[in-house]
Amino acid sequence: MELSCHCGNVKITVAHDPETLTSCNCSTCNRYGSLWGYYTPDEVQLSFITDIAGTSVPATKAYKWGEEYIEFHHCQNCGCLTHYITTEKVPETKLGINFRMAPIVGIKEIKIRHFDGADSWTFID
């Protein structure tokens, strides 16, 4: 499946659909409204347009917060949250792909699980 930000600057291709998507209510994800599908780096291909309408466009900007275990990446052009990657503080690299960047028809059959990242750190569905 191919996903992209609104302007198309960031394109993400995943090797397979995730079994489930995660809606997290932590202080960051709640504000983003993201739906996460989780992958290892070898299951994801990221590509970036380096020029939109003759203007050089940086690919993404990363945001880290708190303990800095995760870098959230946003398109520098349209601002969409596209993905996150764990930092070197986490022993195993994991990518969270924001499936809000996927075509709606592509995700309507994938079960959404609700994760309490704000309090209990457990699934609450």
Results as ranks from 00 to 15, higher is better:
E43G: 03
G79H: 14
H74Q: 10
C5Q: 14
D119P: 00
W121Y: 15
N98S: 00
S4F: 07
Y39G: 05
D17G: 07
P58Q: 05
E109K: 14
G54H: 04
N30G: 05
T22G: 00
Y84G: 02
G37F: 05
I107V: 15
V57G: 04
E88C: 04
P91S: 14
S56L: 00
C75H: 12
G106V: 10
L35K: 12
T86H: 04
L21Y: 07
N77V: 05
E92G: 00
I97W: 03
E19L: 11
L46G: 00
A59I: 05
P91G: 05
I85A: 06
F99W: 14
S23P: 00
R100L: 08
C7E: 11
H6I: 09
Y38A: 05
R113G: 00
I97M: 05
G33H: 12
P18R: 02
G117P: 11
E43W: 04
G66Q: 07
C78N: 10
T82A: 06
I85R: 09
T40R: 02
P103E: 15
L46Y: 15
K11C: 04
W121D: 11
R100I: 08
T87G: 05
L95K: 00
Y63I: 04
V57N: 07
T55Q: 13
Y69W: 07
V10P: 12
E67N: 06
T86N: 06
N30Q: 15
T93V: 13
C75K: 14
L3Q: 03
Y84M: 14
W36T: 00
V90F: 10
S56Q: 03
D125C: 04
W36F: 07
C5L: 12
K64G: 07
K89G: 03
A102I: 10
N9G: 06
R113C: 02
V14D: 05
S23F: 10
H83G: 00
S23M: 10
I124N: 13
L81M: 04
E43L: 02
R113N: 14
K11V: 09
P18L: 01
E43K: 06
S34L: 08
N77P: 04
F123N: 09
C80N: 11
Y69G: 01
G37P: 02
D116W: 13
R31C: 04
I85G: 01
Y69H: 06
M1G: 13
C5I: 15
F123C: 09
S4Q: 15
N25F: 10
D17V: 06
V10A: 13
T122F: 13
A59H: 14
V14E: 10
G33T: 09
A118F: 13
C24I: 13
Y63K: 06
N98L: 02
T22I: 14
A53K: 11
A102F: 11
K111Q: 10
F72C: 03
W65C: 05
H114K: 14
V105K: 13
E68P: 05
E92A: 07
I110Q: 06
A62R: 07
K11L: 03
W121E: 10
A62Y: 01
N25K: 09
T82D: 01
S23L: 09
V10K: 08
K108C: 07
D119T: 14
Q76M: 12
K111P: 04
Y32W: 09
T82I: 03
C26H: 08
E67F: 02
S47A: 14
T40N: 02
G106K: 15
T93S: 01
S23H: 13
L3G: 06
C26Y: 08
K94R: 11
Y32C: 03
K111Y: 03
S23T: 07
V57Y: 01
Y38R: 01
A118K: 15
I52S: 10
